[in-house]
Design a protein around this nucleic acid. Sequence first.
DNA 1: ACCCACCCCTGGGCGC
DNA 2: TGCGCCCAGGGGTGGG
Length: 283
Amino acid sequence: MPELPEVEVVRLGLERGVVGREISSVTVHHDRAVRRHLAGPSDFAARLRGRTVTAARRRGKYLWLGLDSGDALTGHLGMSGQLLVVPEDKPVETHLRVRFVFTDGGRELRFVDQRTFGGLFVEEGGAELPAAIRHLARDPLDPLFEDDRFVQRLRAKRSGVKRALLDQTLVSGIGNIYADEALWRARLHGGRATEDLTRAKARELLGHARDVLSESLAQGGTSFDALYVSTEGVSGLFARELHAYGREGEPCDRCGTPLRREPWMNRSSYSCPRCQPRPRHPR
DNA sequence: ACCCACCCCTGGGCGC
DNA sequence: TGCGCCCAGGGGTGGG
């Protein structure tokens, strides 16, 4: 569920909560949480012990902490991951996966993840940009994101518009919620063919995606339940400002037509039947 | 090079 | 009350 705004809220919390601090010990409670670290959990912990966190960075939905060793502690929250900065005497969470203690004796960092789709790993020399996420495009809130290149690559695809928005190598940070919201704002059905969009329409869609991401970030992100929270355990407020996602049967905020839900790639898409007519041959 | 199906996982909600 | 099914879904991987 965490998409760009939710991950950025977590990054800001890490910047305030752990940058500049030295890690004294790391305990892995669930091996699956250290998934892409080939050398295993004990090596993972050893590479972090004694290291000072120098930066908290993000690209799309990936986060990483730069370390004074030049390595990067990289992670993805998956569906249900949380990075919490909490007092060390706080009772342990049911789904605690990894625990980071600091030499200053202050609040500790906990990776909590119910569904275990998330994971952490240490990449040697990855502090600037981990190689494992170099294939990701920049996200629409990145000052170096190239709008023209996005428009060009989108229109060169032979795919559906929603598929394209979720393609993290084209534009990163957008998931199912914000894709549906951007499409609603652009009055486009997600099954529209990418190559049929005009340059102007593609540019407009990108603008809506950027708007919805930054508006959500300003509200602390979208939370439907306790599964997405900031490092302080606080839920975001943007769910009440969604126009499409999760609103099947409710009236469209533009035209009043009841919104529909369509099965799509083993999940759901929400849209307005009137503002976002289905194309003859959906992609 | 690109596209897509498959698989990983848990718990809340709901029907019977 | 309890069981079993469905749903939430991002991304890596491998096949076409």
